[in-house]
Amino acid sequence: MNRPDWDIVTGWIREGARVLDLGCGDGALLQHLIAERSVRGLGMEVDDERVAHGVAADLDVIQSDLDAGIRDWFGPHSFDYVVVSQTIQAIRHPERLLSEMLEIAEEGIVTFPNMGYWRNRWQLGIQGMMPTTKALPNPWYNTPNIHLCTLRDFEALCEGLGIEILDRAVVDQARQSSPLLRALPNWFGEHAIYRIRRRVV
């Protein structure tokens, strides 16, 4: 079962690259990248059940909490890509993680649910309630997603951190693009997928 962002992430990754997947879950994306791109993959995950699952799937998985930072684990330029798929919104300090991941890798790939998606705006703006959608299924009082943002929020943060956006893809749940979506991505994109790197000064 592919998630909406996988095809685009896969398309951005070079054959045989060294890839670190932060918050790799049960390792499904890593397995996908190994199968499709023959990457040398490593996952980082905090949850016991998911780590056990990744190990059982013959993946290399490091059990660690991303909130504790990643610089302790890896030296500079250890990877070609660091992928943070549907995880950045659950991190205590997303800005620190973004900076750290571009210290250890040439490029970062970040995917997250777009809070600016029209259904979210409708639920919050018109109905006056915190949104619950397929991309954000949890109620406000019990959700891992503590740092939600919109496309514009994310791009502003990248600007502030000196991060260059190399590519951006925006999709809806059905992974489709449309003229409407291309014209107003912050309204009609349910998922955002960014390829970033440290700005060369």
Binding site: L42, V51, A52, G54, D60, V61, I62, Q63, S64, W73
Partner: peptide, 18 residues
Amino acid sequence: REIVRALLAGGKSVSYAE
């Protein structure tokens, strides 16, 4: 973790469970 870090630095295949 010191062992794991050293293995990672050497590009070795390693999994770590805490």
